[in-house]
């Protein structure tokens, strides 16, 4: 088999693929979900560009260093990194056909996501209470737009995950629920990547400019 050499020995026959890839239709949906992630990368890039342009336009409002508390941002980062790990374990367990394990790691992921969103909302409420709303300056507009866009994604992810947990309970690990869990994990890890950039650019960057 000449193709074996070209694959560097990694060629996998279709019958050995995980079910979500074995089924052609489900595998196409996974590729489609990658295309969604591609478009979301571009949306976040636009929001990051907006933030980079407006970060110094503070008008009569506060500077980034005055607004951001690094310890809150660090806790949010640790929660999201951990939730990225827990969903990673859930997908690993899915490949081992361990449904109970998938369920519990998913539940843990949802709880961490909820903790993240609550801390973020508390942070936003504190900013607004201090008189630093999103109409205060171009900097704060860009900040709330970027960070709330991410927070909205996480909230949508929580709703999606809860719906998936119900489906998992009712239908078990079928080809379809496996594909849905797989695309959910792609979404969740993608949000973690975007948060790492928010932590670096917005929160660490706020101390450096």
């Amino acid at each position: 088999m000449s193709s074996q050499a070209l694959h560097g020995g990694h060629k996998t026959p279709p019958q050995e693929l995980p079910p979500e890839f074995q089924d052609q239709e489900e595998s196409i949906k996974i590729t489609g979900f990658w295309m969604f992630i591609v478009t979301d990368v571009l949306i976040f890039a636009s929001l990051f560009a907006t933030y980079a342009v407006f970060v110094n336009r503070i008008a009569s409002g506060p500077t980034p260093a005055q607004v951001f508390q690094l310890n809150t941002a660090l806790i949010e980062t640790l929660i999201l990194l951990t939730s990225s790990f827990t969903i990673g374990i859930a997908i690993w367990a899915m490949r081992q056909n361990r449904q109970r394990m998938v369920t519990w790691w998913m539940v843990l992921t949802v709880l961490l996501g909820m903790a993240f969103v609550s801390i973020e909302l508390t942070e936003f409420a504190g900013d607004v209470a201090a008189g630093w709303g999103w109409h205060t300056s171009a900097f704060l507009s860009a900040f709330f737009l970027l960070v709330a866009a991410h927070g909205t994604h996480v909230t949508m992810g929580i709703i999606w995950a809860v719906a998936l947990l119900f489906q998992l309970r009712k239908r078990g690990l079928t080809t379809v629920t496996r594909r849905k869990l797989y695309t959910f994990s792609l979404y969740w890890h993608f949000l973690d990547i975007m948060w790492v950039f928010i932590f670096t650019v917005v929160y660490l960057g706020g101390r450096l400019i």
Binding site: P14, L17, F21, S27, I87, G88, I91, S185, H189
Partner: peptide, 13 residues
């Protein structure tokens, strides 16, 4: 790291 380790970016049919 996220793409390679967690998102299995090389997995495909």
């Amino acid at each position: 790291l996220q793409l390679g380790v967690f998102m299995h970016v090389r997995e495909s049919r």
